[in-house]
């Protein structure tokens, strides 16, 4: 892997972290409404997946979607503008935090109903199979989504039709405030794929290189026509489920322990230990991200509100 690629990956992870931190402030200032699900702690998962994909590979995720949005290259300006409900957001301020997407970048959302995007992902994979594209659809979802029927209908269909889809479960240990053990009959989520004859693997979701490697291997198998694959990324969200989560369901000691496994810290240590980057280079990236996010916040805050007539546009395409 080229050094520039490594530095870009580092940049992406730091960018996600800083955008989420600024979003927290903006939310506390009352400038962001509704829900705000932060990706802090899970950055290695989406970054590793996007680093492994090819341009023809679609990616689709759930409502914790700011990470993917930034990974696929949507400028922080547009992400923050969407959070602020501005006309310059990529969904024109009509989607908000949970509905980020950029079709041009093959990022298909941002879906807010738990598990509902899994059958949709199967349909996208069907379209690629149907039209003879060698693209793979990467579908991310949380551990909580594996308990709803949509997951099971989608996995079954994907195997029956041998669809080119990479199922990625981000197991962050809690569906909202309910621990995996309290909600799922098996706490090793990937075992559920066995019931559908879908090959699967687990990966350290705090290690971006491990995610990239595992996803890359799975994608090539799928691309070769081997059908769906499920990857379970073991990760942890450092913040609450959404804003205003009292976090009564977990000990602060548990959170602290995981924070010692910070995916950005792990990657930074890897880069310096392997001689792929030196500290000043990484510091320079951190500084440039600060400036980038600062400018993005300014852009978003100074962007116009959607025009009143936008209320009635896009209800129908035709």
């Amino acid at each position: 892997m080229e050094k520039d690629t490594h530095l870009d990956i580092y940049h992406q992870m730091v960018l996600i972290r800083r955008v989420e931190e600024r979003a927290t402030e903006l939310y506390q200032q009352g400038k962001i409404g509704g829900f705000l699900h932060l990706y802090i702690g899970q950055e290695a998962v989406s970054t590793g997946l996007v680093a492994a994909r090819r341009p023809q590979d679609r990616i689709i995720t759930a409502y914790r979607d700011h990470g993917v949005a930034l990974n696929v290259g949507i400028p922080a300006t547009q992400v923050l503008a969407e959070l602020l409900g501005k006309a310059t957001g990529m969904s024109k301020g009509k989607g908000g935090s949970m509905h980020m997407a950029d079709v041009e970048r093959n990022f298909w959302g941002g879906h807010a109903i738990v598990g509902a995007h899994l059958p949709i992902a199967a349909g996208m994979a069907l379209a690629d199979q149907y039209s003879g594209s060698n693209g793979v659809t990467i579908c991310m979802f949380g551990d909580g989504a594996t308990n709803i029927g949509f997951f099971h209908e989608a996995l079954n269909l994907s195997k029956v039709w041998n669809l080119p889809v990479l199922w990625v479960c981000e197991n962050n240990r809690y569906g909202m405030g309910t621990a995996v053990k309290r909600a799922s009959a098996v706490d090793e989520i990937r075992q559920k794929a066995n019931g559908y004859g879908i090959p699967n693997a687990a990966v350290d979701g705090m290690d971006v290189m491990a995610v990239r490697q595992a996803a890359g291997e799975a994608l090539e198998k799928i691309r070769a026509g081997e059908g769906p694959f499920l990857l379970e990324a073991l990760t942890y969200r450092f913040r609450g489920h959404s804003m205003g989560d009292p976090e009564r369901y977990r000990d602060s000691s548990e959170v602290k322990k995981w924070q010692e496994n910070d995916p950005i810290g792990i990657y930074r240590a890897y880069l310096t230990a392997e001689g792929l980057a030196i500290e000043p280079e990484l510091d320079a990236i951190e500084n440039s991200v600060e400036e980038e996010v600062q400018a993005a916040v300014q852009f978003a805050e100074s962007s116009p509100e959607p025009a009143p007539e936008e209320l009635f546009t896009d209800v129908y395409a035709a």
Partner: peptide, 14 residues
Amino acid sequence: AAIVGAGIGAAMAG
């Protein structure tokens, strides 16, 4: 859900 959901995805994909 899979019949309609997959239809939605395939439609979104063209």
